[in-house]
């Protein structure tokens, strides 16, 4: 136990300041308004939905929770149920096998709600596009309010993107 305390003390504080976001968000839809800052400025609950991702975006989303980025210090936290969420963070080209699940997750999220498409697949279909197996971009299935591009977006891009949305 003492060894653990000792290591914690020696590790110290990891958390880094986040530079002012510089255009991390590529597209912001008309429905995304100042409302989000006013309503959710202090506390944004995110339900993530992997709708057909390779898992790259999830790795970086997890990294945004590590000590260096500590996304929770901005009041942004990931929740277990869409019923507790303000925002859906959707990754992946939407596989047809996930289409109904994504739609239902969106329906289960209380209003007002926002959708952010994370990563190139969610933004445009990426390497996968539209096929017998895939619906392509998230916007083909549910309304999307903003897009954070990258393959995958880095944790800092994701964090800056979300902060940019909160500060508008």
């Amino acid at each position: 136990m003492l060894h653990i305390f000792d290591k914690i003390m020696r590790t110290g504080r990891l958390t880094e300041p986040v530079a002012q976001p510089e255009k991390a968000v590529a597209e912001i839809g008309a429905t995304f308004s100042r409302e989000i800052a006013a309503r959710f400025g202090g506390s944004l609950a995110i339900r993530m939905v992997d709708a057909g991702s390779c898992n790259g975006c999830e790795l970086e989303m997890n990294a945004a929770n590590n000590g260096f980025y500590d996304i929770e210090r901005f009041g942004i936290h990931f929740v277990a149920s869409p019923r507790h969420a303000d925002l859906l963070l959707v990754t992946g080209t939407v596989s047809r096998h996930m289409q109904a699940a994504l739609q239902r997750t969106w329906e289960a999220t209380p209003n007002p709600k926002f959708v952010v498409a994370m990563g190139d697949c969610a933004a445009s279909g990426g390497e996968f596009g539209i096929s017998y197996a895939s619906c392509g971009a998230v916007a083909n299935v549910i309304p999307v309010d903003a897009v954070i591009p990258g393959c995958p977006p880095t944790p800092i891009t994701l964090l800056q993107g979300l902060l940019e949305l909160l500060r508008r």
Binding site: D50, G52, S53, G92, T93, S95, R96, H97, M98, A101, E127, F128, G129, S131, Y132, A133, S134
Partner: peptide, 11 residues
């Protein structure tokens, strides 16, 4: 499983 079947082999 199969929820993230994206048709990798076909495409």
């Amino acid at each position: 499983l199969g929820y993230v079947h994206r048709g990798v082999e076909k495409i």
